[in-house]
């Protein structure tokens, strides 16, 4: 079988979704890990984002990570485009709909709404990138800060703090995290089943780990704007 046949078959297309999805999940682990450094301010009020700014600097200053970042954008692109192509093609397989639709009988609503949830995440992503990635990596409009060394860091922490003083931004971010949670709750376990995990013992494991991941990671993300808005994590 040719590669082209393999990846364009209905199973191959789903494999692309599963692999790109799992790659993006691995990115979330790195992203949440680094961003969680802002919580250091809860335990040490004089931190003011020092640990976070240094970690963010590490992610932006070295070529190896910048090259991996290109891979990340490719991963997003593939997952989004393939997702929309599959959604449109799958919908077109039923040209006349039912008078009485099935609704969510027998399935969970979010498993049938991956296109919608993905779109909400995409809209959030556009706002999110314009808030932080663009000023940090493209326009370089972040104020500098140094911690008693010659190295100058972007004060991304200050940018976060000021951004999250606006109530509507906090609400948009929390909604983005909720969409992500539902999207992951289906996507995480479905990815493993697409990869051919048929042993029910491992399917149960993928479901359990997926549920835990879908709650913990979006919750940690959602708490970032919330804790800055309420000054649990602050700038002084």
């Amino acid at each position: 079988m040719k590669w082209s046949e393999f990846f364009t078959s209905s199973v191959g297309k789903k494999l692309v979704m599963a692999l790109s999805g799992l790659f993006l999940i691995s990115f979330l682990v790195v992203h949440v890990g680094i961003n969680a450094c802002i919580y250091a301010d809860i335990f040490d009020d004089s931190d003011n984002g020092e640990i976070f700014n240094k970690a963010a600097h590490f992610m932006g200053a070295y070529y190896v990570i910048r090259i991996i970042e290109v891979g990340l954008f490719v991963g997003f692109f593939i997952h989004i485009i393939q997702g929309y192509v599959l959604e449109v093609k799958n919908r077109a397989k039923r040209n006349i709909g039912y008078k009485v639709p099935m609704g969510s009988k027998g399935s969970r609503w979010y498993s049938k709404s991956m296109g919608l949830l993905g779109t909400l995440i995409l809209l959030f992503l556009v706002i999110h990138i314009s808030h932080f990635w663009v000023p940090s990596r493209v326009t370089h409009t972040l104020e500098p800060v140094n911690y008693g060394t010659p190295t100058e860091y972007h004060n991304l922490y200050a940018r976060m703090y000021h951004t999250f003083q606006q109530g509507w931004v906090v609400i948009v971010y929390v909604l983005g995290c909720i969409s992500l949670a539902w999207h992951l709750l289906h996507g995480f376990q479905a990815a493993f089943r697409t990869l051919g995990v048929s042993n029910t013992k491992y399917i149960a494991l993928a479901r359990g780990a997926g549920a835990a991941f879908s709650i913990i990671v979006p919750l940690l993300f959602a708490l970032m704007p919330i804790s800055m808005y309420f000054n649990w994590v602050d700038l002084n």
Binding site: V11, M102, S107, T194
Partner: peptide
């Protein structure tokens, strides 16, 4: 699988309906 795709069925998204 090739025949299934040729017949115009969609792909599985594990909704379990």
């Amino acid at each position: 699988v090739a025949q299934m795709d040729k017949e115009g069925f969609g792909s599985c998204t594990f909704t379990e309906a």
